[in-house]
Write a protein that binds this DNA or RNA. Structure first.
Lengths: 290, 290
DNA sequence: TTCGCCCTGTTACAAATATAACAAAATTCT
DNA sequence: AGAATTTTGTTATATTTGTAACAGGGCGAA
């Protein structure tokens, strides 16, 4: 943004944590398509966010504006500063497919999700989380639920190569309490929880938290209740034109995290990877890539 | 604002020639910093353009709007479309992160992968593949290797809800030959194979092919050798700035396929999903989303 | 459970904003 | 040049829009 001054989006984002239910709902709605939604009439914004009109007025004041018009004025200023380039044409992804084809619809939605998700991530927090995952002195536990299990497993598969002392726990299994026996303040938990949020996962998080373990949470835009226990949370947008949610965005975050962690101590990583290569060669499970 | 319709800026430009003095003055003022200036109150716009208030109102009507508010509404729509346009090269995804930050590098790469991948997919082939997966009269087998196992499992998890008669085979397991005993020409295999390509997966594919089963393959841009046996192949770009490859693109394809399959026979899908909901409610594994 | 606090929404009022009607310039045509 | 027409600005009104005051409801503490 213009010369280091905080944008309104930044301000909203920073206050997101100590907001109430209705306010958070509203905040997300504003950030949803920022800044367009904030430039309409107050009542319209309230409606799409499903909150009452005064809630909007109050929140705007809490953000430090004298009133809604002033808030809008600043939004316009931001806009003036950012948007100089003309409106770009939107072409379809899969060429030859009608734009209504599921391929294009889905891709649009996912790209959109990525955009919104990345815009809300604090790079410092992300680095911090990566450092925690990379820290070999701290035992690492990776937890997934029914659907998010896929993500957990993928992270596990790779961190296992990157470092020792990693454990994968399925919260849907009855066996998970066993794993918590030795958990202490030195341990790090990476927890995946997207709706429908799972009781088991919450219980597990509570117990880990009670033991003093640090929690890193990957969740969706509505945030799993685990986020109150978490040191660091990342919430990805997961809405797509389907009966289910999309984990593609979270997958991107996980892969990014893997890439970041492997860079923290590259020499060590390299050694471990070469060892693995050797072992695979010996088992002849894989062919050489030609 | 969607496909092909003129933007307001376009409209103004086209009428610029047969405008009067005051109108042209106003028009230039609007285009000066577009669209911000048009999103403020009418009076403010009149002031910066040095014209009277009604001049603005009249011109807006000449442009074909019922009134100033309607004009603003369309401006906002345009803005929404612009800012959401995924292709519009936003310098950075995670704002506030230096563009060299791993978050931005990785996201750029993945978006790029998605574009290239989608551009190469034949929508008809995709529909065909979806129809095969949706066909409940044909037994469905889903096969994944060491890394691609994650994708296979994700597809399995969902197709299992969508239809009966789905089997998940891990090619890394020694048990997989058992599954092939009953395979015949009526069966469909969805196989995931990315580098490093696995011998087991190829063997399995060969045997399935020999039995006359149809194969749908998800692979990477270099194509697993399985592709010679496959009825339909989809190859995703998977290169990212990391020691590993990215499965995010393939995950997108898998999710799209799930969405497409669920639409093939939505009534049936709905029934099955409701049944599942009931069962989850009974086990109280999940909390209701509030 | 009951009290009290804080959040949220409904209603009512005040301010601003846009539109309509009218009047004054400016421009054009004869 | 003078009348007619078009363009522009001023004033007044009606509507929208934002804000303040009030009341209901949820949640936690005692």
């Amino acid at each position: 943004m213009a010369d280091g001054i905080l944008t309104i989006a930044d301000r909203i984002h920073s206050k997101l944590d100590d907001m109430t239910r209705a306010e958070r709902q509203l905040a997300h709605s504003i950030l949803e398509n920022y800044p367009a939604s904030g430039l309409g009439p107050l009542a319209a914004l309230a409606k799409v966010a499903n909150v009452s009109v005064p809630t909007v007025a109050r929140m705007v004041q809490k953000l430090g504006f004298k009133g809604y018009p002033e808030f809008q004025a600043e939004l316009r200023e931001e806009l003036k500063a950012t948007v100089q380039n003309p409106i770009a044409k939107h072409d379809t992804w899969a060429e030859g497919a009608p734009s209504g084809h599921v391929l294009n619809q889905f891709t649009d939605a996912v790209i959109d999700n990525i955009r919104h998700t990345l815009a809300q991530i604090d790079p410092d927090k992300f680095d911090e989380a990566c450092a925690m995952v990379a820290d070999q002195t701290k035992p690492l536990y990776i937890v997934g639920g029914r659907v998010s299990h896929t993500l957990a497993e993928y992270l596990f598969l790779h961190t296992q190569i990157l470092r020792p002392n990693v454990t994968h726990i399925q919260s849907t299994s009855n066996a998970w309490p066993h794993y918590l026996l030795d958990v202490g303040p030195n341990d790090v938990f990476v927890i995946f929880d997207v709706r429908r949020y799972e009781n088991n996962t919450l219980k597990l998080a509570e117990m880990a938290h009670a033991c003093g373990a640090k929690i890193i949470l990957f969740t969706d835009q509505w945030r799993s209740p685990v986020h109150q226990l978490a040191e660091i949370s990342f919430s990805g947008r997961i809405v797509v034109p389907s009966a289910w949610d999309s984990v593609a965005t979270l997958m991107l975050l996980v892969e990014t995290m893997i890439a970041a962690v492997q860079n923290v101590d590259w020499d060590d990583t390299k050694d471990r990877m070469e060892q693995l290569e050797d072992m695979f060669d010996q088992t002849k499970l894989f062919r050489k890539f030609t």
